Simulated assay, not measured.
Amino acid sequence: MKKLVIVNGTMGVGKSTIVSEVYKELQNSVWLDGDWCWQMNPWNVTEENKLMVMNNIHYILNQYLENSMFEYVFFSWVIHKESILDEILAGLIGKEYQLIKVTLMCSEENLVKRMRQDARSESQIENSIKRLENYKEMNTKKLNTNGKEIDLIIKEFLHMIVEGNL
């Protein structure tokens, strides 16, 4: 059965870094990063734009899930509330897939270090730290990335997906 792998976590935790490598390791896989749907200038969070982005996410994920070539569909995004995750899944009605939800976690100290290495602004770092607590209570499998090299995180993540070690 096709697997829909949703990867969330606060900004700067490493979602894009990890998923950009993991999907290449698995044949017949595809990846959508939710941030791609927000690439607009100026970046403006309005109700109209939020609706458009969610519609685009639904459309793309539905196309990937319907395509017989793909066995693994990866979707990464901040998704800091269960209600956002529920809204995403609600738009995938009628599709058969195994859902795997993984939250990448790290300590505040590690997060700040990573975000500064990426030259993120202090306001971005502050916003990301504020959201860290949201993820602890979400109904997802947690993958702690503290002190781990990227290769080890990828190995652990692949084990979760392929072997069902959730």
Score class of each variant (00 low, 15 high):
9 G>P: 02
19 V>E: 12
72 Y>V: 12
88 I>V: 08
17 T>S: 11
108 E>G: 13
54 M>E: 11
141 K>L: 04
59 Y>P: 05
5 V>I: 14
52 M>C: 05
31 W>P: 12
7 V>R: 04
70 F>S: 02
29 S>D: 08
106 C>D: 09
46 T>Y: 04
4 L>A: 10
38 W>C: 06
122 E>H: 06
14 G>W: 08
51 L>R: 12
26 L>F: 15
24 K>W: 05
142 K>Q: 14
67 N>W: 00
113 K>P: 04
149 E>Q: 09
116 R>T: 14
16 S>N: 11
4 L>Y: 00
63 Q>H: 06
10 T>L: 13
147 G>L: 02
140 T>V: 15
100 I>F: 04
117 Q>E: 13
33 D>P: 12
18 I>Y: 03
56 N>E: 11
66 E>D: 14
48 E>K: 15
11 M>A: 15
24 K>I: 06
159 H>W: 03
108 E>Y: 10
104 L>M: 02
44 N>L: 12
143 L>K: 09
33 D>I: 14
142 K>E: 06
92 L>S: 05
19 V>W: 08
76 S>T: 05
59 Y>C: 02
92 L>P: 01
37 C>R: 14
24 K>S: 04
56 N>F: 02
39 Q>I: 15
21 E>A: 12
10 T>N: 03
145 T>H: 09
150 I>K: 13
112 V>Y: 06
88 I>G: 00
139 N>K: 04
144 N>M: 10
83 S>C: 07
26 L>D: 14
65 L>C: 01
6 I>D: 11
148 K>A: 10
15 K>V: 04
13 V>T: 07
38 W>T: 05
133 E>M: 06
32 L>A: 04
37 C>H: 11
4 L>T: 01
101 K>H: 08
62 N>T: 00
83 S>P: 02
70 F>M: 03
146 N>V: 12
107 S>L: 07
157 F>C: 03
45 V>C: 15
133 E>A: 15
8 N>K: 11
104 L>H: 12
1 M>Y: 08
163 E>N: 07
130 K>I: 07
146 N>K: 06
94 G>I: 05
66 E>Y: 00
153 I>E: 06
129 I>H: 04
110 N>R: 13
52 M>E: 14
13 V>E: 03
57 I>A: 08
98 Q>W: 04
107 S>C: 03
132 L>F: 11
23 Y>R: 11
104 L>C: 00
73 V>R: 09
56 N>P: 08
132 L>V: 04
45 V>F: 13
84 I>F: 13
113 K>V: 09
17 T>I: 14
108 E>W: 01
132 L>Y: 00
74 F>Q: 15
141 K>N: 15
18 I>C: 09
7 V>M: 02
30 V>H: 01
12 G>S: 09
110 N>Q: 06
15 K>P: 03
145 T>D: 01
56 N>H: 15
45 V>A: 03
102 V>W: 01
65 L>T: 00
72 Y>S: 10
26 L>A: 03
2 K>R: 14
76 S>V: 02
98 Q>N: 15
95 K>V: 05
100 I>G: 00
76 S>D: 14
113 K>T: 12
20 S>K: 11
65 L>A: 07
126 E>P: 08
163 E>G: 07
20 S>L: 09
40 M>F: 12
